[in-house]
Amino acid sequence: MRKKLVIKDIERCVGCGLCMYACSRKNAKKPEIGVGSSGILPMSLSGFERGAAIIVCRACEDPPCAQVCPTGALKPRKGGGVIYRENLCIGCGNCIESCTIGAIFERDDGKIAVCVHCGYCVKFCPHGVLSYEEVES
């Protein structure tokens, strides 16, 4: 069964940002320190006391970002969202423009950072905001 990342309860978000750092570390062979490769962005509603928003891929069944990718770097993923093949990405930025919720981020090398629904960040969400759940077929 395919799984995807879901925001289970945004009201539990304390704005710690551990998900961003986890996302940067997710690649076991080349983990990064910082947030430059993070495909998830928690932010406050002008102060976390007013609540939080988490900008992250919603795992679209028919992802517009994959449709506008000229090189096939982004391909629809079974269960929703996309698979990202970094070596094919030319950094055109079409996908960034196409995502209605702004969930594709530009990296400092011109390529992109996007959630690929691996679920690694969920292990480091200390307050039960994020969840990794099976996709209903």
């Binding site: 940067s24 570390r25 983990p31 990064e32 430059g36 990296r107 400092d108």
Partner: peptide
Amino acid sequence: RRRYKPVDSKGY
């Protein structure tokens, strides 16, 4: 939004 790599990935 910068980033860098640790010297030892596994250990990190």
